[in-house]
Design a protein around this nucleic acid. Structure first.
Lengths: 109, 109
DNA sequence: GAACAGTACTACACATTGCGGAGTACTGCG
DNA sequence: CGCAGTACTCCGCAATGTGTAGTACTGTTC
């Protein structure tokens, strides 16, 4: 099955979550997400999500040169981002609980 | 926050789940989903999903007249639908678990 | 009985968002 | 030099949930 549709609306949350502990740049965020189990995330999706979150005012951004390759554009959570993460986490948990109940086998008559 | 994006790819699963126990028509499926906690689902989304699942060969369909209003188009799971439900449930559970881990506070240093 | 709410469905255009592919650019290795 | 790995951007596409409008039938209310 295709997991890409499941990511809709959740990738924001996942990106915020991996940025919670430390700032990160796009390529790094991508690796963290894949390491966390979201192996099918495409790079363009992550870059796009970071830009969107930044445009929404949830992230700070600063560029740092790297000696091992091209420059890196770091992103970090600001207050808006942390609030968004907290709120989205609640929404997600509630939604996931609702789905869990719905998916329970109603064996007992 | 907007829950509509969270539904992407999951509405199929939710619809299959509510049809698991008994056949139902669109308006009825909509009520069952809302009763289950998915209160923001739009009617057009449900009708569209039912048509899509039917087109994909996962549902049977038959029309029955009603004495309390217009005709009703009933849908029911066939083998393909039950298989899809089982498979999608697994995918969803795995995905939800992954997200849960990702969202855990890493308090312990 | 005309108007309206509730039921039940269809069709269309639209917004969001993840993805694929192409392109740019820098470093280091063979 | 060519190629892989790193790092990012841009563009167009595809999937899918939503809003709006429209059709149609039943029962209630003024």
């Amino acid at each position: 099955m295709d997991t890409s549709q499941l990511l809709k609306g959740v990738l924001d949350l996942a990106v915020l979550a991996v940025l919670r502990d430390a700032d990160g740049y796009g390529y790094d965020v991508l690796r963290r997400l894949r390491a966390a189990g979201l192996e099918d995330v495409a790079d363009a999706s992550v870059y796009g999500t970071l830009r969107r979150l930044f445009a929404a005012g949830a992230l700070t951004s600063y560029v740092q040169p790297s000696e091992e390759g091209p420059h890196r554009k770091y992103y970090g959570l600001n207050k808006t981002g942390r609030d968004l993460l907290a709120q989205s986490t609640k929404t997600w948990n509630h939604f996931a609980d609702t789905m869990s109940v719905l998916l329970l086998e109603k064996e007992a008559a």
